[in-house]
């Protein structure tokens, strides 16, 4: 049964949303999703770029009030 893990990285400067995503994926099962909240506007482009490079799956990117919500599925 796949799970969705929520990570509230709003206001996170270090290690930052992408590092949080990488760290969270490490403990996820294949097929699990991570929903990352970030106030860093760079995340909306940085995270999809890395997800493509690392061959995971980008489920969605949307702006929700004060933050971006980026959903990634662990593919391998």
């Amino acid at each position: 049964m796949s799970e969705r893990h929520k990570v509230d990285a709003r206001g996170a400067y270090c290690p930052g949303p992408l590092m949080e995503l990488i760290a969270t994926l490490r403990h996820c099962a294949i097929g699990d999703e991570v929903e990352m909240w970030s106030t860093d506007t760079g995340s909306a482009t940085d995270i999809p770029a890395w997800v493509k490079k690392a061959r995971h799956e980008l489920v969605g990117v949307s702006q929700e009030g004060d933050h971006w919500a980026i959903i990634v599925r662990k593919a391998h």
Binding site: Y13, C14, P15, G16, L18, M19, I22, G42, D46, A49, W50
Partner: peptide, 10 residues
């Protein structure tokens, strides 16, 4: 480094 720059702090 894991992300696209030399350190997580820009």
């Amino acid at each position: 480094y894991p992300i696209g720059r030399l350190h997580s702090l820009e």
